[in-house]
Each structure stands twice: as C-alpha cells, then as structure tokens.
Design a protein around this nucleic acid. Structure first.
Length: 900
RNA sequence: GGACGGUUGGCUCAAUGGUAGAGCGCUUCGUUCACAUCGAAGAAGUUGCAGGUUCGAUUCCUGCACCGUCCACCA
C-alpha cells in the first residue's frame, strides 16, 4: 500500500484490500491470555434474514469504535459476532420463497423437507449480513462466528430448557396467550406490542330470562360473544347487586348464562356489565377459573369462527363481527355504537391483529428469575448509559407475566420433550418428574436431550416428540455465554476469561426482549452478570422523524453510502449525529460531511508527506522540553493535541462517542490544519517543525483510527517513520501532560484573534486579498508586545502583512484604517484616500456594540446584590471585562473623532 | 391511565446558573503549488408558553402546549 498523490481520497479503491490485510494478519482474533486484561463485546446478533440497515450501521460502528479503541489501549479485545435464526421471520421468508418458486406451502412439503429448504436458504443467503458488516469495517473475531442454530448452541439451549424444567421453572399449561392467526403461532407479550386503534364500543342487550327486561353489555369485540359463559358485575356495584345469580339469554346463540360477581369488573367502564368469554380474553379466563366456567373456543387457529356457531361457521373473525352486529340490529338487541379508542396487540413480525387465545403452551416462570435481575441493576452492578433506561428496565418487571416460549412453527429449536402415549392413556405418572416439577401436567412427559426410543417410565416405545419449537429469544438470551461454548467443559477457561463481557451496545427496542432476559440467564446459569455496561443508542429515523423501515420506503441503504462516500464517511456522519441515546435523523446529504472530512484528512496528510524529509523525523517527542521547544506554534499544537487526547479518551469511556469524534474533528481541522499547517509552511525545512508535523499527524491518526479505520490505515501505511505494521495494532498515544499549557494556549489565542481582526478589517474595507499591507501596532501591555514581536512572522504570513511597526506611544497615522483586537490597537496605512463616511460607519457600529456590552456589565457591577452574592471570581472577571471594554471603547472613540 | 424523551439561528443538532456554539444552507470575496469534497470574511437566535427560585435562568423548580416513544389485565 502506498499513498497515491491523488488530490482526492478514493475509498472504493482501498477499503476492501485494507480489510483483507487485517484479516490476513488475524488481528481480530483473540485468545484467552492471562497476561492481558480482556475487553469483550458480544454483537447483538442480526437476524440471519437481515440485510444491513442504518440501525445495524450505527450499532456496529459504536461497537467497533469501542473495540478498536480498547484494543489500542492494550486490552485483549474480543468482539463475538454471529446471527440469530429468527424463527418466525426466517420461516416467513422461506415460505414466501417456496410459494413463489414452487407454489407450495410448508405443509405441502412437510416438516423435514421444509427445514431442508430453510437450511439451504440460510447457507445461501445467511452470510449476506456478515459480509456487509465487514464492509463497514467491523473488527469482529470471525473465527468465533456463531449462529443460534449451530449444533453447539443447540446443546446450550437444551441444557437450559432441561435445567429450568427440572428446577420447576418451566411448565406446560392451558392459558390465554397472544396468538397470531397469520403466523399461526403463540407469541410472547413482548412480541405482541399494543397499538392504539380507533374502534367501537358496541352496546348489546342480553335479555334476562323469564322477564321482559334486559341488561346491556359494552364490548369492543362482539364476535367473541359466541363464546360467552357468563355476565359479570362488580360485587360492590349497588346498582345491580340484585341481579347476581340471575340468568340471561345469550343473544343469537340463545343459550342461558349466569350473572356472576367478580372484582375484576370495573364499575366505571361501559355499563358495569361485562361479558365473560374465558377462551378469548385473559381477564375472562381468570374469572372463568374462579367461577368454574368451562371455556368455549369459538375460533380456529387461522382466525375463523369454528364449528357449532351456526350462521357464523367459517367466517373470518372481522367478517363475523360485522355479521353479528347486523343480526343484533335486526333483532333490536343493539343499543348503540360509540367510537372507542383502545390498544390492540399486533404481531411484531407480520402486524396482524393478535387474538387472545386459549391454548396449551410451555412457559417460563419469570418471578424467580427476575429478582436478581432487578437487584443487579438497582445496585448499579450493571449500569445503563444513559442512566434513564435503568428506570424503564426496572419498570418492566412490575406486572411481568410468565414467558410463553413455545411456538407453533418449524424453524427453531425443537422442544426437548417427548410424550409416551401409553403413560398418557393409562395415567401412570412419572414419579421422578412429578417430584421435580410437581405443579404441572406431566402425564407421560419425558424431558431428554437425546431422542429416546423407550419410555423410561413404562418401557413403551410408542413415544413422540413435542411438535413445537422454542421462541427465538429462548436461544438469544444465552448469547453472552453460549457463544463462548457453554456448557462444554473445554470452554471453561475461555468463559472464565471473557465472561462477564464488558459492554453491550444495543437499541432501546430490545431492552425487554433481550437485555433483561440475558441478565436473567447470565445470573442463573453463569452465576454472574453477562455484562457491566449497557449502552443504549437511539433509533435511526429519516429526516421527517419516521422510523426507517422497508415498508415505509424511507430507507437509506448503508451500502450505497459506503459505495458513494466510503465506510469511514458513513461511520463519521452517523456517529457525529448520535448524541447520548437520542434518536438519529438521517438524510443523504448528511454523509457529505463525512466524505469531506475524510478528504481533509487525506489532503492534510498529503501535505505532510510531500514535505517530510524522513531522516529528520525519527525523534522521540520526549526530547522536547520548554527549553528546546521555543516556537509558539509547536508548543501550542502539542498542548492542544494532548488536551484533545485526554478529552477523547474520557469521552469514549463515558460512551459519549459523538463528543469524542467532534473533539478530534475540531482539533484536526480547525487547529492542526487551519493554523499549524498554515504556519508550518514558513519554516517547513526546520527539523523541529518536521518532527512536530509528523508526530502530531501520526498521533492524531491513531486516535482517529477507531472512528475512521480505513483511511487512517491507508495513510499509516505511507508514513515513513518507525511504526507498527498496522495502525490497528498501534498503541493509543500516551498522555504527556507536560506539553499541556494554558498559558501557551492563551498566547496563541492572542495571535489568532489579532490575525482574525486584521483579516476582518481587510475584508471590510475591501483590500484585494492578494495585496500585502503594512501594520502598525500599539499595546500598552509589554508582554503582548513581546509576544507579537517574537511571533510577527505568524501575523505576516496569515494576515498578508509585509511590514509590522510597533509604536512606543499610541499615535494615529495619517491615511490609515484602524481597529482593536483585545488589548491591541492596529492600523493599516492606505495609499489611496479613505472613504471616511464608510469608515466612520464601521467604527461607530463597533462603538455601539461595545457600549451595549459595557452597559450590561455596568448594570451588573452597580447592583449591590450582585456584589454581595456573586462569587468573587465572577465579580473579578466582570470588573476586568469592564476595564477591557472601556479601554477598547476609548480607542475607538478617539479614532471616530479623528475621522470626523 | 402511568412513565420517559424532545421543543435553541432557514435546516440538523451542541452547550452552559454569569455577554448562546458547530455543521449544512445563505451572502461577499478568493483557484499563491495539501485540499473548491477548499480557504477568508459575513448575515442570521427575546433558547415552545406561563409562573416561581436567584443578584442573575436558555440552564434549576412548577404548570401548560405541541411532537415522539414506551408501559398497563382501556371489556
């Protein structure tokens, strides 16, 4: 690799080969090594069906920055990559594919053949996202690439299921779960997010038996009345107490159902009467249990009304709703319809409205697992960044229901449970299992890692495996240790070394799905937290604030950005825009900032490399002290660099990634390029200048590397000094505090301000930029005069000044324009005649400005309360400010008088 | 119903109990050999509204409005 002298940086030409260079050198791989401290991150595994979107780009850029920075800081860094099998999502994708290509459903193919199709799919397309992560520059240890359906990983999942089962923390039972009629599977509560919908509240009359009276029930889902088993009121409801125990006629079905009393009923809502449908509502299910009401399922798994429902048989659930309303209207049993907003669960995969559905499922008891998970966060053992997510995390544990883990799909970890038909029929209980897990139905249940062909209880070979697979998150929650090969014995050393991991970087959307559950699993199985810091970044949105999603068509494709502007530009822009967990608003133009910065880095480096004489630069900075580093610009740039280094290191440790990159940007562009490089042009052959130019560039590249790995490596390879073979294994610059000097900073600032004032004046009076001027300077402060005299070259160079004269006494030259910068007044003599009118206008405007400031300042200093209460420091500062302003004002007034 | 986040120049966002900053955009000028994906200069903000605390509030407190998000057994 060598630095071509092209004027523009062309990322497309170099990025792939740089990445391959890193891979060849095996820099990303980490092994347990007791002599070094570990720093570990596990990637939030993208879905195997995924293609890289901006959310991934943000997420993985942050991780890569942390990993690369820590690696340079001497940690033994491991970033574990992998993908998630994403049960429902992947199954949907493959189902669509075979439908399109072969016009077959998965049922047509059968379980085995279908799974073969899924594996084929994943072998062909499953690594797409991985290669895209590489494009981004991710320095993951690819030798440890994991997949949640890997053989070893499956073993972990089974181990966990069986352990929890034996501990009585997994049970099977008939409960109301969230059912997606399209995917035809159960979902956990987290997988069925509620969205507000504009619906209606239907008021339906239920005639009271043997009377002409009726009661009115308000419901949002009239179709479920087919399964009504009772009407409930609150026992405290005095209005209707007399009706408890009476019987009403269920309209349309003409069945008799009782009126019962239950505390779950909210007297305030609707009419105070609630229809009780135990098979289709979680509350009704609870009431049903309490009152021994046999649940009646009126829907099939695909969301149609099931048999024995008369006219409504086979109707879609929403069709049935309309039909029932029409029929009720006809029979004059519909009192009214009111608009009603309510939250309805939706399938997080296909957005179909979920159905609360009674079915036989497997559950994990959450209470016992959550206690420690709450404690470790409350106590601060695990920290959230920003801290506000702690509250949100903890809040989730209130009202936490048991976790439904069985899914009626095929792609996933098959539940390691077998049933013995004979035992089920004969009713002989497996005593061993009964003792371990006494609360559940376990007739004929065999829990086993391997497929057994004989029932251990009765010896029968008529056994079959549970048809269901486990929730994807039931494998994801093991990620931090399953990827380190738990529970294999040979993995012990690695686990001990890399676990707990250090930082988890993720988005807010999966705090409950994933973060909370990893904490539970880690504590339960590893007896230790899975990570210490959780960094939550924002959601990527488009510039109108909408979440970026394929369905909205507002996607900005990261790969296209990489292709057009380079991975470094993408990384720079997205990181710069991400402040402390706030959402990121993106648009195409924003990536130009990154491209421009990369180009600036490129060209600054080009300047340095073109001018460097290699034999001059192999000098350690340590040889410099105040005595042998006399040039202000040299001392200043070192002071500024080391301050930047300190800030950047701190910002990274505090997860303020955007601040870190801004600090580097500011330093590199506006201090190093704008001032140091410009000034260095004057004495570019000077050995000291050469060393400082080289060292500052080289060190800045190092701190920039985690953020913009490709361009920094490309330039690094062209540096001629002594260096490591790659910048990514170079060490983080050591903070040399002796170079930091506030005094030097402020001295340089005086000069910068003066040059800015001179330039400003030149522009205001429209002096030709190519024309040099003379400068006459006065200041009564001797230190300043000395400073300016010593560094007059800077002013000459950057202010386009030929001669500088210093006045002993302030005297106004003829035919000159004048201005004031801090404690310095200066004059530019002009050959032609000054436009006095314009000049007067300019000066008077400045005077007005200062008078305003002065007025402000005087009001403060004349305020007794201010003098009494404000800190001494502030008062002193204010006083000094007034003195300076007065001095400046006086000078300008004299000048103004002189002009008029 | 509860909770959280946001509201600052045309746009996107910083910052701070003591004269509000950057990038983009805009105006003017400039291709002298690192960079026009650049340089120099400039215009532009009563920091959502109303109270309160304070010598002093954009910053702290209270209420409100609007935008966004999450949670809840809203029949």
């Amino acid at each position: 690799m060598s630095l071509e002298l092209s004027k523009q940086y062309n990322p497309r030409e170099v990025e792939d080969s740089i990445y391959n260079f890193w891979l060849t050198k095996n820099y990303f791989h980490a092994e347990a090594d007791a002599s070094k401290k570990p720093y570990t991150i596990v990637i939030p595994p993208p879905n195997v069906t995924g293609i890289l979107h901006m959310g991934h780009a943000l997420n993985n850029t942050i991780q890569d920055i942390l990993i690369r920075a820590k690696r340079m800081q001497g940690f033994n860094c491991l970033w574990v990559p992998g993908t998630d099998h994403a049960g429902i999502a992947t199954q949907n994708v493959v189902e669509k594919k075979i439908k399109k290509e072969k016009n077959l459903t998965r049922q047509d193919l059968g379980r085995e053949k279908f799974l073969e199709e899924v594996w084929n799919w994943r072998n062909e397309y499953g690594s797409t996202i991985i290669s895209q992560l590489k494009k981004l520059g991710s320095s993951c240890d690819w030798q440890r690439l994991s997949f949640t359906m890997d053989e070893g990983y499956s073993k972990s999942v089974q181990e966990v299921f069986i352990t929890l089962f034996n501990a009585g923390l997994i049970y099977r039972g008939n409960y109301i779960i969230n059912w997606c009629p399209r995917c035809q599977t159960a979902l956990s509560d987290e997988e069925a997010p509620h969205k507000d919908l504009d619906g209606f509240l239907y008021y339906i009359k239920y005639p009271i038996k043997d009377t002409k009276n009726y009661i009115t029930v308000a419901t949002t889902r009239p179709e479920t009345m087919l399964g009504d088993k009772a009407i409930a009121i609150n026992p405290k409801d005095k209005r209707f107490k007399h009706l408890i125990g009476k019987t009403v006629i269920l309209p349309l079905i003409e069945k008799e159902i009782p009126i019962i009393a239950d505390e779950l009923v909210d007297m305030e809502f609707g009419t105070g009467f609630v229809k009780v449908t135990p098979a289709h509502d979680p509350n009704d299910f609870i009431m049903g249990k309490r009152h021994n009401l046999e649940p009646l399922k009126i829907m099939t798994p695909d969301g149609k009304i099931s048999e024995n429902s008369g006219d409504y048989n086979g109707m879609d659930r929403f069709e049935a709703r309309e039909a029932i309303i029409e029929d009720l209207k006809e029979r004059k049993l519909l009192e009214k319809i009111e608009p009603h907003k309510h939250a309805v669960g939706h399938c997080y995969r296909c957005h179909t409205i979920i159905e609360p559905y009674l079915s036989l499922q497997w559950f994990v008891k959450m209470k016992p697992l959550s206690e420690e998970a709450v404690r470790v966060v409350k106590s601060g053992k695990i920290k959230f960044h920003p801290a506000r997510w702690k509250k949100i995390y903890l809040n989730w544990f209130n009202n936490l229901q048991d976790w439904c883990i069985s899914r009626q799909i095929w792609w996933g970890h098959r539940i390691p449970v077998y049933y013995c038909k004979k035992c089920q029929e004969t009713g002989i209980l497996n005593e061993k299992i009964k003792n371990q897990n006494s609360k559940i139905e376990q007739r004929g249940v065999i829990v086993s890692k391997t497929k057994s062909d004989k029932c251990p209880n009765c010896g029968s070979s008529d056994i079959y495996q549970d048809e269901d697979v486990l929730d994807t998150w039931f494998s994801s929650w093991l990620w931090p240790f399953a990827t380190l090969n738990w529970p294999k014995e040979q993995s012990e050393k690695e686990l001990k070394y890399f676990y707990p991991t250090n930082t988890l970087v993720t988005a807010q959307e999966i705090i409950f799905f994933w973060v909370a559950r990893m904490i539970m699993a880690g504590i339960y199985f590893m007896k230790d937290i899975p990570f210490r810091d959780v960094y939550i970044h924002g959601t990527v949105r488009d510039d109108t604030g909408k979440k970026m999603s394929k369905s909205l068509g507002n996607i900005i494709d990261p790969l296209e950005i990489i292709n057009n502007f380079g991975a470094d530009a993408l990384r720079f822009s997205i990181i710069s825009l991400t402040s402390a967990g706030q959402d990121v608003y993106l648009s195409n133009e924003k990536f130009q900032a990154g491209r421009n910065f990369a180009n600036k880095i490129w060209n600054a480096s080009r300047f340095v490399l073109i001018n460097l004489e290699p034999e001059k630069i192999n000098v350690d900075l340590c040889i410099y002290s105040k005595d042998n580093l006399k040039e202000l610009k040299d001392r200043w740039i070192l002071s500024r660099f080391y301050q930047t280094l300190a800030q950047v290191s701190k910002s990274i440790d505090q997860f303020k990634i955007n601040e870190a990159i801004k600090q580097i940007y500011e330093f590199f562009w506006h201090e190093f390029c704008d001032w140091y490089i410009e000034l260095s042009k004057q004495d570019i052959k000077n050995p000291t200048t050469q060393v400082i130019l080289y060292k500052v560039l080289e060190k800045t590249l190092r701190i920039l590397h985690p953020f913009m790995p490709f361009i920094t490596e490309q330039i690094w390879q062209s540096l001629s000094g002594e260096k490591s073979e790659s910048i990514m294994i170079a060490s983080w610059p050591h903070l040399q505090k002796q170079f930091i000097s506030k005094e030097i900073d402020s001295q340089m600032q005086v000069i910068i301000d003066l040059i800015a004032s001179v330039r400003n004046l030149r522009a205001e009076i429209k002096i030709d930029p190519s024309k040099t001027i003379d400068l006459i300077i006065y200041s009564k402060n001797k230190d300043i005069i000395k400073l300016l005299k010593e560094n007059s070259g800077y002013i000459q160079k950057l202010g386009q000044v030929l001669n500088i004269t210093f006045q002993e006494k302030e005297a106004r030259p003829k035919n000159a324009v004048s201005a004031v910068s801090g404690k310095i007044s200066f004059h530019i003599p002009l050959e032609g005649i000054i436009d006095i009118g314009k000049e007067l206008l300019r000066v008077n405007k400045e005077i007005e400005n200062i008078e305003n400031f002065l007025k402000n300042s005087s009001t403060k200093l004349n305020n007794k309360d201010f003098l009494k209460n404000a800190p001494l420091e502030v008062i002193e500062k204010e006083k000094q400010k007034r003195i300076d302003l007065k001095e400046k004002l006086e000078k300008l007034k004299t000048y103004s008088k002189f002009l008029s």
